[in-house]
Design a protein around this nucleic acid. Structure first.
Lengths: 342, 342
DNA sequence: AAGCGGCAAGAGAGCGATTGCATGTGATGG
DNA sequence: CCATCACATGCAATCGCTCTCTTGCCGCTT
């Protein structure tokens, strides 16, 4: 087939997708040139570029990224692995991440690990199988995961946390410090009997430790506690609140692992005729959109999830070859936002 | 390199990932056999299988799915395209979809279209570029999208809706009927002055039409209305409620496009000292987890998002070659769940 | 006029799997 | 004892790109 400027029957292309070869033939150039044009349009001469552009339009060519990735060993994919999606504290991070990555032409592979180590390992393996450029990860790293990841050229980014020795890099903040600051804040407001609700998961545990350590050190009295399954969402609120009512001493403030849970507790408390924060105060975590919209508005800890996403993406983008970026810890901090609920 | 049963220095593998060749050499078989073992372990002899298994373990081999996909022209990937993630009514569908697909070894490419046609087209193109086996899509189909999709062998599955002429197949329900049923329900409960809050987007529009058509036909009086940007989430509630208060006639029921929004309206109403549903009733949509947890519990329309996911996956799995499945419409229906709020 | 530099484009060797076909082998039956 | 067959395995072409190396060409300098 040679280049022709007459219209072609597009229908005959439906059977088989057009390839680089087809485009090259139509445009009267070699595949190498078309490939160059696609990846870096400025390196081909203007007239050639125009012919190629037309040939692409005529053939409806859509590159095969499987082939491209294989040849270049760059997949332009990143894996994003989180525990849950529903009512998740990571949603802003994911939303930003997916938006920014896809507008940069990178596709996102989403994995939900739950709390299962086996599933986590499967997902990591799947990500490596696809030769992703980076793995963005929230969760505990098992030895198997560590081994697989270390051998893979993918950049491993642990987000929402700052582990002591990240495998790749980490973008997050100190959960222990966050817990501590919540404790200090509540003390300064005069609360005396906190009730700490901790979700499953290492980060929640660290916040809880931060809180309890600080509280016990300054006050001498350990707070009462409750635990919920991951994820700490709305649905657990009723049970949590029922438990609180059964305590000998009603707490004066409930410290929740997420705003969703906090919201639920507030709803329950109000329904029970209690005033928030006068009868019982509530603290959330994550500063989700609801925190500012709930009545009363919810005192929470703001974490800039979008910034976490952007820092992670920047790290991917700035990476040279397979070297580790210079900054292995990126601390985005957090900010306690005092509102009406505590 | 020949097969050896001595321990090898695993470290020398870190530079380059192990390939099928490495495994084959170690196990003393051909790459074809290893490939067969990986894709269908039962076809290789037991002793051979064992040797291969060991070789894989020793080399830490992880298959390259880019190469595999290229050779087999099956990517074992599906694209899932939704407008938003945060407070999204699709979350259950996505959660189920991702869980079930990944445990079947298929990876999920997530795309967020927002309300932008350009971005939607880019994402479709990206999906086809990766040669996904299927595209699961929620949203309006532009001519460009239709053209790309028709030429691609990927199965196109439109979910959460039942368009008249789906490109591939559709798994969803009639939004018009849902709107109609809400209208009937509210009439039967004696409500007289509904206020309909409609989000941007075709589906919300269809529900609104269903509602308004039915209401106007039976009652003769058109409901008052309000509009919100997509997504119809918590954050708009305050504005919506403020608008309601400014109306000449206070409506007796607010019909919301999502439970998140309904929740917000309830919170605002309660904060304003109104009783729900006595002073003002509220209807949600989607039957999200909060619908049953909120106080009062929210009357909503239950859509089995998980089932939508499973039906879509089943269609992918049962597909033979590139043929269209026999059932082009799968109606999962919906169910009005009457609770306390209306 | 010869030499040189620089840009644009082509040739072709991979990338790492899959898979149709050919082949070898041992068991089976006549 | 040999033809037959099923089964397990190997050979090698193929998938559609990328990218290094080379070539061709044009315009300038000297």
């Amino acid at each position: 087939m040679t280049a022709s400027d007459g219209p072609i029957d597009l229908e005959d292309l439906t059977g088989k997708a057009a390839t680089l070869d087809d485009v090259a033939n139509r445009a009267g150039v070699s595949t190498a040139t078309v490939s160059r044009f696609i990846n870096n349009p400025t390196v081909v001469a203007k007239a050639t570029a125009e012919r190629i552009r037309e040939a692409i339009a005529e053939t409806g060519y859509i590159p095969n990224l499987l082939a491209g990735g294989l040849a270049s060993s760059k997949s332009k994919m990143v894996a994003v692995l989180i525990p849950y999606l529903t009512d998740s504290i990571f949603n802003d991070t994911i939303q930003t991440m997916v938006e920014e990555l896809s507008s940069a032409g990178t596709t996102v592979m989403l994995g939900l690990t739950g709390v299962s180590e086996a599933r986590t390992e499967d997902l990591i393996r799947a990500a490596i199988s696809r030769r992703v450029d980076a793995i963005i990860f929230t969760g505990p790293v098992t030895p198997n995961v560590e081994q697989m990841v270390r051998r893979s050229p993918a950049l491993f980014i642990q987000v929402w946390d700052l582990p002591e020795d990240p495998i790749g890099i980490a973008v997050g903040f100190s959960h222990h410090a966050a817990g501590r600051d919540i404790a200090r804040f509540l003390m300064s407001r005069g609360y005396r009997r906190p009730h700490v609700v901790t979700a499953q998961g290492a980060r929640a545990q660290m916040r809880r430790n931060g809180f309890v350590d600080e509280w016990t050190a300054s006050d001498g009295i350990a707070p009462t506690e409750a635990h919920v399954e991951v994820p700490s969402r709305f649905g657990h609120a009723r049970r949590i609140f029922a438990e609180i009512r059964r305590l000998d001493h009603m707490p004066d403030v409930v410290v929740c692992g997420s705003d969703y849970l906090a919201q639920g507790v507030i709803v329950e408390a109000l329904a029970a005729g209690l005033r928030v924060p006068e009868d019982i105060a509530v603290v959330g975590f994550g500063n989700s959109s609801i925190a500012g919209e709930m009545r009363p508005t919810i005192t929470s800890v703001e974490v800039d999830g979008a910034r976490i996403a952007r820092e992670a993406i920047a790290a991917i983008r700035n990476r040279k070859g397979t070297a580790l970026p210079p900054d292995r810890w990126i601390d985005v901090g957090f900010r306690l936002v005092a509102r009406e609920s505590a």
